[in-house]
Amino acid sequence: MSAFDYVESGEVDGRRCGRLHLGSSLTVAEAAELRLALMAALEDCAVLTLDAAEVGEVDVAGLQGLCAVHRTGVARGRQVLVTGLDVGPWPEILRLAGLRRHEACPLSNDRKNCLWL
């Protein structure tokens, strides 16, 4: 079984929803696999929720992957959300990496549409 587990999670307002479980590690070692899983998931649904609650280890490659899928989604009129960023290493990682909504994303000047907390 893949570390990245995708499930359909029904429809909201006629939009197909999907949920991708991110495994315990989002590092450069998994980056290629992550990219494929993200691409597949984004193909499949209009509202993609990334569940990051189980992530224990993450590096810049992982962060970039999530950023990339988010901006691709936005460009295609799809919604990409991420949950579980308030647990585990996330708060510290996001602080260190300087990824904060309203600061970093070129797509989110309106401050509503950033992947990150």
């Binding site: 992550l34 962060l63 992957g65 950023c67 970093a104």
Partner: peptide, 27 residues
């Protein structure tokens, strides 16, 4: 420290090279 990531170089996911570093930072 205040870290601000610069994400403008990150390409769409299809063009992403997983082992390339796109992010850079202002601190």
């Amino acid at each position: 420290a205040r870290v601000v990531a610069q994400t403008d170089l990150i390409p769409p996911i299809d063009d992403l090279h997983p082992e390339v570093c796109y992010l850079y930072w202002d601190v």
